[in-house]
Computed example of a mutant assay.
Amino acid sequence: MSIFQIKQKTSGAVLWTGSAHDEKTALDAMAREAGYADYASLPDQIRAGGVQAAKLDLIS
Rank of each mutant, 00 (worst) to 15 (best):
Q45A: 08
I46P: 00
G49T: 08
S11N: 01
L27Q: 10
E33S: 09
D44A: 15
K55P: 00
A53C: 11
A29Q: 12
G35H: 10
W16H: 12
V51G: 01
S60F: 11
L42S: 04
K55V: 06
A54M: 12
A54Y: 03
A54K: 14
I3V: 15
D57C: 03
H21S: 13
S19C: 07
A26K: 07
M30N: 04
M30G: 04
D38G: 04
L56V: 15
A13N: 09
F4N: 03
A34T: 02
I3A: 03
P43V: 03
D22E: 10
Q5M: 14
A48N: 10
M1F: 06
V14I: 15
D44P: 01
G35K: 10
T17V: 15
L58C: 10
I6G: 06
A29T: 14
A53Q: 05
S11L: 02
W16V: 09
Y36K: 07
A37K: 14
Q8P: 00
K24W: 02
T25K: 11
T17N: 03
G18R: 11
G50H: 05
A34F: 15
F4G: 02
W16S: 08
K7E: 10
D28Q: 05
G18Y: 10
A48P: 00
Y39M: 01
L27D: 02
S19Q: 15
L15W: 03
A40Q: 12
S60M: 09
V51A: 07
D57Q: 15
K9C: 06
D22M: 02
D28T: 05
I6K: 07
M1H: 11
A26S: 08
T17G: 00
I59L: 13
S19T: 13
I3L: 14
A54N: 14
K55F: 01
D22Q: 02
M30L: 15
D28L: 06
R47W: 00
M30S: 04
I59Q: 12
V14Q: 10
K7F: 03
L56R: 11
Q52C: 08
T25H: 12
T17C: 11
A37L: 12
V14C: 09
F4P: 01
Q8I: 02
I3D: 05
S11H: 01
K55D: 09
A37C: 00
A26W: 08
S60G: 13
G49D: 08
I6R: 07
F4R: 03
Q52G: 00
S60K: 14
I46D: 05
V51M: 15
D28A: 14
G12D: 01
P43Y: 04
K24F: 05
D57H: 13
M1S: 14
S11P: 01
A37F: 08
E33A: 07
Q45T: 08
